[in-house]
C-alpha cells in the first residue's frame, strides 16, 4: 500500500503535537524565554514525547518512526531547541546499547543530551544549547556516540549565527559512554530532515500569508508574479522535502536496502528547502523581514544550524553517490 497521508489515529497524534506547540511554543518565546527551551522541554518529557518511538519495554510510548517524523516536523515549525532531538536520539542510543537505566533517565528528563557538531577530525566541536546538559551526542554516517560531559574541555561561549540557541566551542576527547553502529545515524538523518521540512513549511506559510495581506500599487503583493512564483517554488520545495522524508522513514521502517539512500536524499532536499525558503521568506517581507522584531530571520538562521547536524550537505551529496537506490 502506498499511503503517505496520515490515517485517523496518526492525525490525532499530529493534532495533539500541533495544539500543544501552538499553545506553548509560539516562536515569539525565543525572544524572551530562557535558552534551550527550558520551560518547554519538561512539558515534552511529561507528555511522553522523548520516548515516543521507543518500545514500552524500553520505557517508551511504543510508536514508531512515523510519529517521530510528525513530531520533528512540528518541532521544526516551532523552532524547538535541538535538545529535543538530543534526548530522543540519546534515548535510542541507550536503549540499543542495552543501558535501560540511562534510557529511562533520559526519557524521564533527568538527564538532558546536547547535540555536538564536529568542526574537524581532531576533536573540535560545537555544542548546542548544552550548558546544563550532562550528556552530549555526536554522529556521522558510521555511528553515533553518547559522551559524558566530562569528555568536553576548553568550553567557551561563542555568539551564534542562530542567536536563538547557545553555542559553545569545545574540544572532545576520550571514549564515549556508549557507541552504536546500527541504523541510528540513518534515523537521525531522517529526523533532522523532518525538522528542516518544518522550517521550510513555516517559511512558506509566513511568506504566503504576508503576500496575501501586504498591499502595494493597490493590490496584494501576492498578485505580482515575481512574488507568486517565489511562493510557488517554496511550496514545491516543501512538498518534495516532506514526502521524501516520509519515504525515507518508511524505507527504514521496512528495513529496505535503499533506506540510507532515501535518507540522504531527504536530508539534501530538506536542507535546500529550508535554506532557500528561509531566504525567500525574508525577501517577500521586504524591510520588515530584515528586522529583529519580525519572525522571518528566525527560520533562515535555524535552517543553517540544522543543516550542519551529522555532517553538512556536501557530505550527504557525496554519500548518496554510492548508496543503493531502490531496485
Amino acid at each position: 500500500m502506498i499511503d503517505l497521508l496520515p490515517n485517523a489515529d496518526e492525525q490525532a497524534v499530529l493534532d495533539n503535537f500541533r495544539s500543544v506547540l501552538r499553545a506553548e511554543a509560539p516562536v515569539s518565546r525565543l525572544r524572551e524565554a530562557r535558552p534551550g527551551d527550558a520551560t518547554l522541554l519538561p512539558r515534552m518529557v511529561e507528555l511522553g514525547w522523548i520516548g515516543l518511538g521507543l518500545s514500552e519495554e524500553h520505557g517508551g510510548v511504543g510508536y514508531g518512526i512515523a510519529e517521530e517524523m510528525l513530531l520533528f516536523r512540528e518541532a521544526g515549525r516551532h523552532l524547538v531547541s535541538p535538545l529535543l532531538l538530543g534526548a530522543v536520539l540519546g534515548a535510542h542510543v541507550a536503549a540499543e546499547a542495552g543501558d535501560a537505566d540511562l534510557a529511562g533517565a533520559i526519557i524521564a528528563g533527568e538527564k538532558s543530551v546536547a547535540l555536538l557538531i564536529r568542526k574537524d577530525a581532531k576533536g573540535a566541536v560545537l555544542r548546542l544549547d548544552g550548558a546544563a546538559a550532562p550528556l552530549a551526542l555526536v554522529w556521522d554516517g558510521a555511528g553515533m556516540a553518547l559522551y559524558d560531559e566530562s569528555a568536553l574541555s576548553g568550553i567557551e561561549d561563542v555568539p551564534a549565527l542562530d542567536n536563538y540557541v547557545t553555542l559553545e566551542r569545545a574540544s572532545l576527547a576520550g571514549a564515549p559512554l556508549l557507541h552504536v553502529t546500527s541504523t541510528l545515524p540513518v534515523r537521525a538523518k531522517i529526523l533532522v530532515s523532518a525538522m528542516l521540512v518544518g522550517v521550510a513549511e513555516s517559511a512558506r506559510d509566513m511568506a504566503v500569508d504576508y503576500a496575501k495581506l501586504r498591499e502595494q500599487f493597490g493590490q496584494p503583493i501576492g498578485a505580482f508574479q515575481a512574488i507568486k512564483h517565489f511562493c510557488a517554488d517554496m511550496a514545491v520545495r516543501a512538498e518534495a522535502a516532506h514526502f521524501q522524508t516520509l519515504v525515507a522513514g518508511f524505507a527504514l521502517h521496512e528495513n529496505q536496502p535503499d533506506a540510507a539512500y532515501q535518507a540522504s536524499a531527504a536530508r539534501i532536499v530538506a536542507a535546500d528547502a529550508a535554506l532557500r525558503n528561509g531566504e525567500r521568506n525574508i525577501q517577500v517581507h521586504g524591510g520588515i523581514g530584515y528586522t529583529e522584531a519580525a519572525d522571518p530571520q528566525l527560520f533562515i538562521k535555524r535552517a543553517h544550524l540544522l543543516a550542519e547536524l551529522g555532517g553538512g550537505t556536501r557530505q550527504h551529496q557525496r554519500d548518496i553517490l554510492t548508496e543503493q537506490a531502490p531496485a
Partner: peptide, 24 residues
C-alpha cells in the same frame, strides 16, 4: 560530485511526490 548528489536526491524526491499524488 556535489551536483550529481543533488540530482540523485531530487529524482528520489520526485518519486516521493508521485507517491504523495497516488496517496491523494
Amino acid at each position: 560530485a556535489s551536483r550529481l548528489g543533488e540530482l540523485r536526491a531530487e529524482i528520489a524526491a520526485m518519486r516521493a511526490m508521485t507517491y504523495a499524488s497516488i496517496s491523494r
